[in-house]
């Protein structure tokens, strides 16, 4: 029981990363590939949060009395996730804009049918 509890979050993050990679490697639709990239990002964010978590502790915000430094989780991964999310959003937005341009030029989203350059 506790074994699964210990591994659950790692399985979720690793699984999301692997599913995302599979989509990127195998699928041929550009929109699906972009979604796959987003899967990878989400998986990494969960991984970072898992690494910073300490069982039985609370968020590192001392706005209420009664929270002592001994019972808060690691603040650094949360700061890193904030940065990683923003970077993920930026890549996603740019990727979608380039997909729009590719579609306007080729009238298809299937990478095997876009013959201009060798994929």
């Amino acid at each position: 029981m506790s074994g699964i509890y210990n591994w659950m979050y790692y399985i979720a993050s690793g699984g999301l990363i692997l599913i995302g990679l599979y989509i990127v490697l195998v699928k041929t639709n550009l929109i699906k590939i972009v979604i796959g990239l987003n899967f990878i990002d989400t998986g990494i964010n969960i991984l970072l949060i898992c690494i910073g978590y300490v069982r039985g502790r609370t968020a590192p915000i001392f706005s209420r009395p009664g929270i002592s430094p001994a019972n808060v989780v690691d603040p650094v991964p949360q700061a890193l996730v904030l940065t990683a999310i923003v970077i993920g959003v930026a890549v996603l937005a740019l990727a979608l804009s380039i997909v729009i341009k590719v579609y306007q030029h080729n009238k298809t989203l299937n990478v095997t049918k876009i013959k201009g350059l060798k994929w």
Binding site: V91, A95, K101, L117
Partner: peptide
């Protein structure tokens, strides 16, 4: 045409 395709390819591989 080439530029956007190359950028797409670069973006996918680069972000992985």
């Amino acid at each position: 045409k080439e530029g956007t395709e190359a950028a797409m390819k670069y973006l996918i591989q680069g972000s992985v």
